[in-house]
Write a protein that binds this DNA or RNA. Sequence first.
DNA 1: TGTTGTTAGTTACAAATCAAACTAATATCT
DNA 2: AGATATTAGTTTGATTTGTAACTAACAACA
Lengths: 143, 143
Amino acid sequence: MTDDDFDLSRFLPYALNQAAEATSIGFQKYYRQRYGMLRTEWRVLFHLGRYGAMTAKGICDRASLHKTKVSRAVYALEQKRFLVRTPQEQDRRHETLALTRQGQVVYSDLFEAAKSYDAKLSAHFTAQEREILNRCLEKISKL
Amino acid sequence: MTDDDFDLSRFLPYALNQAAEATSIGFQKYYRQRYGMLRTEWRVLFHLGRYGAMTAKGICDRASLHKTKVSRAVYALEQKRFLVRTPQEQDRRHETLALTRQGQVVYSDLFEAAKSYDAKLSAHFTAQEREILNRCLEKISKL
DNA sequence: TGTTGTTAGTTACAAATCAAACTAATATCT
DNA sequence: AGATATTAGTTTGATTTGTAACTAACAACA
């Protein structure tokens, strides 16, 4: 490869970051404007809504998020009355997090918004492109 | 699409962000450990090294970076003696940014590191996947 | 039982980011 | 020329993030 072939737009860390930023900005307005949520809060909410009640540690592991970030997001969502904590009987270090009814409603709303936002993005790609894109991103995330 | 088909790993803003994070972390050590640089500093340096001297505004536009971020990165790179500013004669609001010799050396080093890091990542993909991935990311960034 | 280690989650402080206000230089319009 | 608007870039203060130290609950083992 000569130097001329390698510019920033083909450097994966850069290209991925640019693309991630571009799509994030568009989706932010749903959770930010409507519910005053931060990105980590939206993720925690999504995890609970999509995969059911679980512990903060569970979210950390599934989402590759640091525990301090999750801790703060959980606190914020609790303040908003979107979730409740229940310490586990057999081990009081663990607390089960579960969405409140209100949290469920918000989740449903954001879930629909996410689906249609994603559909809007997908419209720019062929089925093959979309499939390969998914596969590549998944592979990269697991490196 | 049923709900079961739509989980976080297929939601583009999420999947892109996870992938971007994963690749960024691996590349950070090059500019962070060796040169104490931040991500924006690395980007500014790369722009100047790859595309030649230009103004801060030019970098903002090309890299879609906010001017405050660039301003601080330029200051940091100046402190490290990696670049110099020269106010333009005909319009003293503009200052041309150019790498110093030392900056060039650092750029070359990081450029090589980037190329080989990218090659290492690319090894996980077929030529077709890599091509489509590039195309998709480029499209998304321009939305 | 007591000591040591581990784990879930929080807190505190430093570093980084964002938005908005600001300065200085130039352009425009009367 | 003089008033107003733009533009490049910086500074400031509030918000957000990252790192490391911390607490509390439990486990393991002498």
